[in-house]
Nucleic acid binder design. Structure first.
Length: 297
DNA sequence: CGGATTTGACCGGCGC
DNA sequence: GCGCCGGTCAAATCCG
């Protein structure tokens, strides 16, 4: 991990939901400055954040008390000339040095899910699960989906974000009393997953990690207001979004070809929009953007 | 009854 | 090779 990062933007948002739940989110984008060609490993940082929040804090120069401050989201190249928001795509080979154990690419996991539960090669063993998930290709290096995490102060673990999710797993987290839940977007052919866990250091904080990009708009059936509040004219992003982290995901989307400035503009747009267009489900307040290219070693 | 959740087993990667 | 660990599967169960 680099010891020097740029946080080129940051914001804080607090939201009070109609049901009384209150959440606060702090997010910032971080990039490495001292390795222009080898980006700070987004994945590695996330991995760090998942494994060791102390390391995360160290990595991002956070004080131990600021665990609510967010983790990195968008890999950014800091080249000699101009900074550029790099898409974190499954095909980008930026994580050569990072831990890829946790990674799984969309087509891999989701197609594997369709592998026949009972196949010929069972060899007489009828253990219903055994040896059947071996469809994993060994040769191909697993590609990581774009990942993006954030921390939110909230009483509820699973925050409503406008999409529909199905829980497919839960695991105990090492060194934490709180489990980690695994969700998958229920929309067909959408491979987006997310993990939700509560920080053991600050139980009031929920860490949500998104992986992949939605290839569909918000489900219109879901709380109509969520989708309704996002209109292309107001929010010129390809897919609509309701939460800041969704915005970030979209900003990181490869097909946008966004540069830093574009990202900033969209972000400003987002802010302006949400300062005036309050979602039905909550009351966004106190979004505090900081200056760009703020250097915080 | 169908969809969502729970939960223990399984898998692959990684470190030793 | 073995054990650990994160992630996923899928049968069982729950629930509206």
């Amino acid at each position: 991990m680099s010891d020097q990062e740029f946080r080129d933007f940051y914001y804080h948002a607090s939201t009070t939901f109609n049901n009384g739940h209150h959440v606060e989110s702090d997010m910032f984008r971080v990039s490495s400055a001292d390795h222009p060609s080898s980006y700070m490993s987004f994945t590695g940082c996330l991995q760090t954040s998942m494994d060791d929040y102390g390391s995360l804090e160290k990595a991002f120069g956070l004080s131990p008390s600021s665990s609510e401050v967010f983790s990195p989201m968008i890999k950014q190249q800091v080249g000699g000339n101009s900074s550029e928001v790099m898409a974190i795509t499954p095909n980008s080979s930026f994580s050569s040095s990072s831990n890829e154990a946790a990674g799984d690419c969309e087509e891999d996991s989701d197609n594997n899910k369709n592998k026949q539960p009972k196949e010929s090669d069972d060899g007489g063993k009828e253990s219903p699960k055994k040896g059947n998930k071996t469809g994993k290709k060994k040769g191909g290096r697993k590609q990581k989906e774009a990942r993006f995490a954030f921390m939110t102060k909230s009483e509820v673990d699973h925050l409503e974000d406008g999409y529909r999710w199905r829980k497919y797993g839960q695991k105990a987290v090492k060194n934490s009393p709180y489990p980690r839940s695994y969700y998958r977007c229920t929309t067909q052919k959408c491979t987006v997953k997310k993990r939700v866990e509560r920080s053991y250091q600050d139980p009031s904080t929920v860490i949500t990690t998104y992986e992949g990009q939605h290839n569909h708009p918000l489900p219109t059936t879901l709380r109509g207001n969520v989708a309704a509040l996002l209109q292309p004219s107001m929010f010129p992003l390809p897919a609509t979004t309701s939460f800041p982290h969704e915005l970030f995901m979209q900003m990181a989307a490869p097909h946008h070809h966004m540069n830093n400035q574009a990202g900033a503009e969209n972000f400003s747009h987002f802010q302006q929009y949400h300062q005036h267009q309050v979602p039905d489900y909550g009351l966004l307040q106190d979004m505090v953007p900081s200056g760009f290219l703020k250097h915080e070693p």
